Amino acid sequence: MDYLKIKNLSSKTNDFSLDKITFDIQKNEYFVLLGQSGSGKTMLLETIAGLNQCEGEIFYKGEDISLLATEKRDIGFVYQDFALFPNLNVEENIRFSSKYKKVVDADTLFEDIVEFLKLDSLLDRDTKDLSGGEKQRVAIARAIFSRPKILLLDEPLSAIDPTFRNSIMKSLKDIHRRYDVTTIHVTHNFREASYLADKIAIIMDGKIQQVGKAEDVLNHPINIEVARFLGFKNIFPATMLGFSSSSKVFSVDPNVIKVSKNGTMEADYILEGVVEECMGIVDHYKLFVKVKQHQFFIKILKRDYEGCYADRTNIIQIGFDKKDISFI
């Protein structure tokens, strides 16, 4: 049985809609919702938490909770801006859930969370005096203290100094494991998703485009829109490679494409093109080569080539191997 199952979930606010969202999450999975700003990520979290009216079903361990009040869903929510209570100090923020529900082994849990998240020196502080990283830790501590069935994290690293991001990502994974919680994490950052996720769902314009194991989604996009969102380059019709299907497309990484001026290249696929531009960037060149009506983007290391292939209008060969192609 799925731990959490979202089935045909729809919701509307102003001029934006979530459209028949469906996916499932297993117990203790770290599930990442990946999408651009305005794609519906936060709205979906709020709908799962019961903050928006909706159609469709939300099942927790087989029980439909879609009509339950927010406070009865046992869901911990950490907002992007942390949403701490300004009239309460750090300890009072963390213990807030005990005002409306019985927290099992509350004192033991509190001491463990404080020690684990290194909050002991902050307990008497006003939240307005905290740094972004400190506020984040307090917000997560408050959510964990409520012993949620599911932890919802809305862009939890967006307000964090990039120099601390790696350590905080590790902390999130450790929290997920230590407190035996199933997590849904919203982000637009591919690196976050790759490091944290067991499973990823790509959301665009209120619709789930693709969902699956993190490695599968990030390396095998289901369509061109997802591929472009994930940063895939050089997306062209497979007819360029001799395939007959006009609907099939392929992508090849700019870093694996070889180039040659003298026709001595070895590769599974060799194409002839015209240099349109060459840009020197620190340790590499960015080449833009037109092959028929399509422009290839290529990166070549300066140390591997003498001089730039910058002579515009020069005809060169580009090549790549079958193993380096992703079909979409």
Results as ranks from 00 to 15, higher is better:
V181M: 03
H294R: 03
K286P: 00
L67G: 09
I160A: 04
A214P: 15
V274A: 09
I25H: 14
K302P: 01
D105L: 05
L84T: 07
L172M: 07
V252N: 06
I144E: 05
I144V: 15
K173M: 05
I25T: 10
T108A: 09
S121I: 07
D64Y: 04
V291I: 12
K12A: 12
T108R: 08
I175H: 08
I48D: 11
G242Y: 13
F164S: 09
M204K: 11
Y30V: 00
I58L: 12
K258V: 04
I298Y: 08
L301P: 02
D324L: 06
P237G: 04
L67H: 15
L152F: 14
I298S: 06
Y3G: 00
F59R: 00
I160V: 13
Y305W: 08
V103L: 10
Q317I: 00
R228G: 13
R312L: 03
L151P: 02
K41L: 09
F16C: 07
F77D: 00
V291H: 10
Y79R: 08
V211S: 15
A193D: 06
A143W: 09
D321R: 11
L9S: 10
Q210F: 03
Y179N: 00
N234T: 11
D64L: 09
E46C: 05
A83L: 11
I140G: 10
R137W: 02
H176C: 03
T163I: 15
K290H: 09
S245I: 05
L152Y: 12
I175K: 02
L196Q: 04
T183S: 10
N166D: 11
V291P: 03
L172C: 08
R137P: 00
S246G: 02
A106Q: 11
N52M: 15
F229V: 05
N14D: 15
I65C: 15
D107M: 07
I94T: 03
A227C: 11
D126V: 07
F232E: 04
S167L: 07
Y195H: 03
F116P: 06
V181H: 05
I94R: 02
K101D: 01
M169H: 01
T22H: 13
R165W: 02
E276T: 11
S10P: 01
I316R: 14
L44Y: 15
I25D: 09
Q53K: 15
D105Y: 08
Q136E: 09
R303T: 10
E272K: 12
Q295T: 10
T313R: 12
T127D: 05
K101Y: 01
A159Q: 13
A143R: 15
K233E: 12
R178L: 07
K102F: 06
R303P: 01
I200D: 02
